[in-house]
């Protein structure tokens, strides 16, 4: 068993499903990452549609869960953006549900964690960045550029402060994507590394010693569920905060 190559990073390998397709020199084959994205989207659709099917006044468990998630994101938007944020709710809610479901599905055995690839999280973060910037320019026109001029700074500091403000604006999509990706990768690698201890330790000592890493995995799986939800929350709340900056133009 141990002779087989089981790198902890093997779980992140993208594999083609079906034949190879290419379009204009780009590889557009269907792969397991895309498959799990589709599964997440399908699961979200089913989850929401079944949850709101009855529209009971007194919600059942399923409906209560859907309503809880709705309220959660709606309150987040209201707290951070105010009433103007209401019309961006569908977008923010979609981001939240997609990241949450991708994170949680990654914890299923033999699944693929979509959010463990930085290109996926970076694409999400870049979408947030571009849309938020577009909203800023649409709402305020060129006046949005004054967002980069800090208020109350003395004039001689401006040549220094404006580049800093611009850089701090442009590192947003990077920190947003790296945070989600790094958390997912770290957790999953840790689980596999601990999992690889079980058999050698169990064979080495009295069989009892194999229990130690199993206990650690059990604890860490719990932590991973917390992190999966927390990172979806962090991603969404940062989207709300960036949205607030674009809508209200105050830091």
């Amino acid at each position: 068993m141990a002779a087989e190559h089981h790198s902890p990073l093997e779980q992140f390998r993208v594999e083609h499903i079906g034949g190879n397709l290419s379009l204009g020199g780009y590889d557009i084959s269907f792969n397991n990452s895309a498959l799990w994205m589709l599964i997440a989207v399908a699961a979200i659709t089913v989850f929401m549609l079944v949850g709101i099917r009855k529209q009971a006044v007194v919600p059942g468990r399923w409906q209560a869960l859907v309503e809880f998630l709705y309220d959660f994101v709606a309150n987040m938007l209201k707290e951070n953006v105010g009433n103007e944020g209401r019309k961006y709710f569908p977008w923010v809610f979609s981001i939240f549900m997609f990241v949450l479901f991708c994170n949680l599905f990654g914890l299923l055995p033999n699944s693929f964690t979509v959010t463990s690839h930085i290109i996926v999280t970076f694409a999400l973060a870049l979408m947030v960045f571009i849309i938020v910037t577009a909203i800023g320019f649409i709402r305020h026109g060129l006046h949005f550029l004054s967002f980069f001029v800090p208020k109350g700074a003395p004039a001689w500091l401006l040549p220094l402060m404006i580049p800093i403000e611009i850089i701090s604006y442009f590192i947003r999509p990077m920190s947003l994507s790296v945070r989600l990706f790094a958390n997912m990768v770290a957790g999953h690698v840790m689980l596999v590394v601990l999992g690889s201890f079980v058999l050698p330790l169990g064979l080495a000592g009295a069989y009892i010693s194999g229990i130690v890493p199993v206990a650690a995995i059990t604890a860490i799986i719990g932590l991973e569920f917390l992190i999966a939800c927390l990172q979806a929350y962090v991603f969404t709340i940062l989207t709300c905060i960036y949205l607030n900056d674009a809508v209200h133009m105050n830091h």
Binding site: S175, R179, N183
Partner: peptide, 12 residues
């Protein structure tokens, strides 16, 4: 969540 927000800003 706030802690997670801060943790990466410097490095990035």
């Amino acid at each position: 969540a706030a802690g997670w927000r801060m943790s990466l800003e410097l490095v990035v």
